[in-house]
């Protein structure tokens, strides 16, 4: 594997009962590039993100993230890799409802022993400021709009400075205008940090902005255009 490769997927298969969702997927996303995964519902896009995040175990094949073969990592190492190197943005925001926006962003930093609490707090505050929520930091998710919640989720995904950012239909629960604004933000912040970006989307306009477009059909990669 090339050291410059952010994500590499080799011959990955995944089956849910009788349904084969991924059928020998091979994929390589260079570090710092933006790849958009498109395809119809049920084509295996979300499962691919799950496998790359290590939250879904493939039945066969291997996944390398920043050179780490995920099948060789134990539970603790996997958690550390996700915490430090992988940021994930979900379709339904997945914020913790009992916590404020600031506390949600701070969640992945709880076990960061490299920096002080004050530094982590400053980092989270700065990120919330960058996503335009400097005056909404103490609000709970229920007090924020969908777009604002997704901005909090983006700040949370970036708070530990990951080299990989995964987004599973990040605009799926947002109206077009808000969705476009959120994606612009995601791209801008990803690019500014030279983050490898793998985004699942239905929206071809969004996909058009990517460095790579990966089209999936029936669990296979149909086309991978650079």
């Amino acid at each position: 594997m090339n050291n410059e490769t952010g994500i590499q997927v080799d011959g990955v298969t995944k089956r849910y009962g009788a349904l084969e969702v991924l059928r020998g997927v091979d994929l390589s996303v260079p570090a710092g590039k933006f790849a958009a995964v498109i395809g119809k519902s049920g084509s295996g896009k979300s499962t691919l993100i799950g496998v790359v995040s290590g939250l879904e175990k493939p039945d066969s094949g291997r996944v390398l993230v920043q050179g780490h073969d995920l099948s060789h990592l134990d539970q603790r190492q996997m958690a550390e890799l996700r915490r430090l190197s992988i940021g994930i943005v979900f379709q339904n925001f997945s914020l913790i409802p009992s916590l404020s926006a600031l506390d949600n962003v701070l969640l992945p930093t709880f076990f960061d022993e490299r920096t002080s609490v004050r530094e982590r707090r400053a980092r989270a505050t700065e990120l919330l400021d960058q996503v335009g929520l400097h005056d909404r930091m103490q609000h709970r998710p229920s007090e924020l709009s969908g777009g604002e919640q997704q901005r909090v989720a983006i700040a949370r995904a970036l708070v530990n400075g990951p080299s990989i950012l995964l987004a599973d239909e990040p605009t799926g629960n947002l109206d077009t205008e808000t969705g476009t604004a959120v994606l612009e933000l995601l791209f801008a912040m990803g690019r500014a940090r030279a983050t490898t970006l793998l985004v699942v989307t239905h929206d071809l306009d969004i996909a058009a902005k990517a460095d790579m477009i990966i089209e999936m059909k029936d669990g296979r990669i149909q086309h991978a255009n650079t």
Binding site: Q75, R82, R83, L84, I88, F90, P108, F110, F111, R156
Partner: peptide
């Protein structure tokens, strides 16, 4: 919610 914590890198023992 517990799955979200796993996704953002909380070890299961925590």
């Amino acid at each position: 919610e517990l799955a979200v914590l796993q996704a953002i890198g909380w070890p299961w023992q925590r």
